[in-house]
Design a protein around this nucleic acid. Structure first.
Length: 487
RNA sequence: CGGGGCGUGGCGCAGACUGGUAGCGCACACGCUUGGGGUGCGUGUGGUCGCCGGUUCAAAUCCGGCCGCCCCGACCA
């Protein structure tokens, strides 16, 4: 009896987080495994989330002045070698094309793991004068990184992303751009995806290969592990030098421009799932939900069906006119209870139930996915449904953010005792975020990593903390850092 | 690449020790039933048992080789 029921359910999140994560993705039909190891197939619901996310972020990026362009998938192998740190960082994971048209290529081509090199090659040809600056380009594309271990959305051999690349006349301008985009990401992820973040600088060890400074937004997943959700890099003049990008400034001096790059990827879908999901399955913020509202009609006798369906269809039309992504579940042979569970598993933010009793009273039941039990349900007059739903969707979004923030706050701890920190990180799964004084020394960072498997996720910006002592070596430390076990 | 495990209808598994008609649950199709929290019953579709070879009257089962996948470690948005 209960066995039979279990087969219909996803593995409870509380029982096995990793199994739950895979279950939810496959059962909610967001994605599927591909015949190629490490690659992922985006199914329509998964891709619709990506599209919603992409469209909104695209708007926000364009608002900053960047424009979209597209560069080739293939890059001459020699390009990668031009920047020392860059090649060191990416060489182990690039896919290389050696043959084309039945012949061995004179120079192998790499499949882009990121586009710094080819974009900077083009920048060198487009930038001659300070009047050509700033040059701000964004690209939506796929990239390939041959990972040893992959996980759906979080780390796949091929993934979709957005990469911005900018060149500026002055160092300060590029530094400002790096932080501007970091703030665009923060606002986007916190407001639109309802995921609370830690915003900060990366340690030298965690820095992007070729960058002078890397900034990050870090989220805390439902298993108390951290996930890097986006990065913004200040590249200095490293790539400008490597690719000989030069311009004449106002005083007729030859200069290398100062550059940035920044990106977020389909990994954000993994973050959405792991931050908001629960034992029943997905919980999607209405902003990205492919279906924001599902209407489940309920009736007993054929005579009732007609009136119920008429009311349900009218509700659907009303919501469509209010630009709500609504779906009426008219499938036959399935009980309402089954449909409730099915749509909850798929993360639909709000469900509307319309039955004979509602038709009689001119109301409908609205059930919100972010809450459980009777308090999740409320009635609304059919005549006011659209306005009530629009308001409720916004409430759900805000509520999901609040819940995620509570979790993050509850799992962020300050430590001034290394042993206590170690105990917190011990065992399987995450240990939350540890907020500690760190002297900045790589040796201390390495020791933490070895002994606790936690890594430096971010050194938060704009700290105004009194000077303290490094948790590891006891030397003086002027900043606190967030360490956590991460994906 | 090191350690562990697994390959049997779409999914999850049993059968293997002791060779003899390939089975169960879910899913799927159809019908009836049911319907305000995963209805119930019936009928039915679907499998070269990962691949190659060997032993045998007979191999999912025994033997040899190969391939693939998953989990754990070293790299990472």
């Amino acid at each position: 009896m209960s066995d039979k029921n279990d087969e219909k359910k996803v593995t409870p999140r509380s029982q096995d987080f990793a199994a739950w994560y895979n279950d939810v993705i496959l059962r909610a039909e967001l994605a599927d495994y591909s015949p190629v190891r490490g690659c992922i197939v985006f199914r329509p619901d998964g891709f619709a989330i990506w599209e919603a996310l992409r469209d909104e972020l695209d708007r926000r990026i364009k608002k900053t002045g960047a424009r979209n362009a597209y560069f080739p998938l293939f890059i001459p192998e020699s390009f990668l070698r031009k920047e020392a740190q860059h090649v060191e960082g990416f060489a182990p994971e690039v896919a290389v094309v050696t043959h084309g048209g039945g012949k061995e290529l004179e120079e192998p081509l790499i499949v882009r793991p990121t586009s710094e090199t080819i974009i900077n090659y083009m920048f060198a040809q487009w930038i001659h004068s300070h009047r050509d600056l700033p040059l701000m380009i964004n690209q939506w594309c796929n990239v390939v990184r041959w990972e040893m271990r992959t996980r759906l959305f979080l780390r796949t051999a091929e993934f979709l992303w957005q990469e911005g690349h900018t060149a500026h006349a002055a160092r300060e301008e590029a530094e400002r751009e790096t932080l501007t985009m970091l703030e665009v990401y923060r606002g986007f992820v916190e407001d639109f995806l309802a995921i609370p973040l830690v915003v900060g600088r990366k340690s030298a060890a965690e820095r992007f290969p070729g960058a002078e400074e890397t900034y990050t937004i870090e989220g805390l997943m439902g298993d108390a592990r951290a996930l890097q959700c986006g990065t913004s890099h200040f590249l200095g003049q490293n790539f400008a030098r490597a690719f000989d990008i030069r311009f004449l400034d106002e005083t007729n001096q030859m200069q290398h421009p100062w550059q940035t790059s920044w990106g977020v990827s389909t990994r954000l879908l993994g973050a959405l799932i792991m931050v908001h999901g629960d034992d029943q399955g997905l919980r999607l913020p209405p902003t990205v939900a492919p279906t924001q509202v599902v209407i489940v009609p309920i009736w007993r006798k054929p005579a009732e069906a007609e009136a119920v369906l008429a009311a349900a269809r009218s509700a659907r039309d009303q919501l469509e006119q209010a630009a709500v992504r609504v779906r009426l579940d008219e499938r036959e042979g399935l009980t309402p209870g089954f449909k409730f569970n099915d749509w909850e598993m798929r993360g639909v933010p709000v469900r509307i139930e319309i039955g004979p009793r509602d038709v009689a009273s001119g109301e409908a039941v609205m059930a919100r996915r972010d809450r459980k039990g009777p308090e999740a349900k409320q009635k609304a007059p059919l005549a006011e449904l659209a306005t009530r739903i629009v308001a409720l969707l916004e409430e759900v979004r805000a509520s999901l953010y609040r819940q995620a923030l509570e979790w993050k706050t509850a799992n962020t701890r300050q430590f001034d005792d290394y042993e206590a920190f170690r105990r917190q990180m011990a065992g399987e799964g995450g240990g939350g975020m540890a907020d500690i004084y760190w002297c900045g020394n790589a040796a201390c960072e390495a020791r933490i990593r070895e002994e606790t498997r936690a890594t430096c996720r971010a050194i938060p910006l704009n700290q105004s903390v009194p000077a303290g002592r490094c948790l590891i070596c006891g030397e003086s430390a002027s900043e606190r850092a967030i360490f956590a076990k991460a994906y």
